[in-house]
Design a protein around this nucleic acid. Structure first.
Length: 326
DNA sequence: AACGTTGCCAACCGCCGGGGG
DNA sequence: GCCCCCGGCGGTTGGCAACGT
């Protein structure tokens, strides 16, 4: 027994909205507002549409100040940073991008940004991970970012969720069982974008530069002998999360490298993003005390980030709202 | 030119939580 | 405290256009 449908499906029109319907809905809402009742609205407006459909059409398309078209680099960076921090909370991410809707951002992420990031960034250097659990960087990113599925224990399963199935080009194309190492110059000398830098931060935070991975059967795999089982698809948390000390160490290491490479400005943003990862890790898998620390860190970081990015302003209420999700 | 594939995006679906009775 | 209604959300899908063969 499912829930009763929100409207009489036999008598409502589905599919694309016509210009006439758009005009009708827009005119009604501009005159009368939504009245706080979307279910009743279509009838009042003389539309043969489901209330939910009207709401969606208004919010995603007809509402004033909706921004369509390409996303800017700044918007990319914000989306990336927030995705890494809070996961696929598109509505929250949308609040940081005026004029953009959650649907827009979600579509943009799924169709372009994710691929752009995956394509731009090789695995971080000097990683030598042992092969056990099939996974991809994107799967890791997803796991670490999706607080709903990560709590209380984030499994690294390739089959437990459809969200973990990725097209082959997201995998780094290796064959056989190899131990592989990446030089930082591969990345730093490439045409890296700020969004790519964000993902690098993510990968470094999640994987850790001192750990190992290997590749088997063209699939990137990692994890320890004892802590990860492919048969029950479970992994211990420490495979993909580690403490603040480790992350601070990571940051220091990459900060030094960035200076050597003349990338201070580039990594200046990276510093903030990297530290954001620390908060994220703590919030995702830490205890209550660390979670509280994470909140404070997020507040500080975001307020400092706000100085360098006008569009990246989060007030306390929104931050707390975010943390409530955890 | 015809057909198949891929990418994009608007719209739908179903679940969840909040609020009110 | 329970139930119901509704809004909101994230995941998914269908249709169309662009592109490739």
């Amino acid at each position: 027994m499912g829930r009763a449908p929100c409207c009489d499906k036999a008598n409502v029109k589905k599919g694309p909205w016509s210009p006439e319907e758009d005009a009708q809905l827009k005119e009604y809402i501009e005159k009368n507002g939504t009245g706080g009742n979307w279910i009743a609205l279509p009838q009042k407006a003389g539309l043969r549409r489901c209330g939910k459909s009207c709401r969606l059409r208004w919010l995603n398309y007809l509402r004033p100040n909706i921004k369509h078209g390409d996303f800017s680099e700044d918007e990319d960076r914000i989306i990336c940073s927030l995705y890494v921090t809070i996961g696929s909370r598109w509505s929250i991410i949308a609040t940081q991008l005026p004029g953009r809707t959650d649907n827009d951002i979600k579509n943009y992420w799924n169709t372009k940004l994710k691929k752009k990031l995956m394509g731009a960034v090789p695995p971080p250097h000097n990683y030598h991970r042992k092969v056990h659990q099939p996974c991809s960087f994107s799967a890791l990113l997803h796991q670490a970012s999706s607080s709903k599925s990560s709590l209380p224990s984030p499994p690294l399963s390739s089959s437990s969720s459809s969200s973990l199935s990725y097209t082959p080009n997201y995998y780094t194309p290796f064959s056989g069982v190899d131990t592989i190492a990446y030089s930082p110059s591969n990345f730093l000398s490439s045409n890296s974008t700020t969004t790519a830098s964000c993902l690098l931060q993510t990968q470094e935070s999640l994987l850790g530069p001192m750990q190992h991975y290997q590749v088997k059967d063209s699939v990137l795999m990692f994890g320890g002998e004892t802590s990860c089982s492919s048969s029950d698809a479970s992994c211990s948390n420490n495979q993909i999360s580690h403490g603040k000390d480790q992350l601070d160490h990571d940051y220091q290491q990459y900060g030094d490298q960035s200076q050597q490479m003349g990338m201070q400005n580039y990594f200046y943003n990276g510093v903030q993003e990297q530290k954001l990862m620390v908060s994220s890790s703590n919030v995702l898998w830490g205890d209550q005390a660390t979670l509280d620390n994470g909140l404070e860190e997020i507040k500080q970081l975001i307020s400092s980030t706000a100085n360098s990015s006008d569009s990246f302003l989060l007030d306390e209420i929104k931050i707390e709202e975010k943390v409530m999700y955890y």
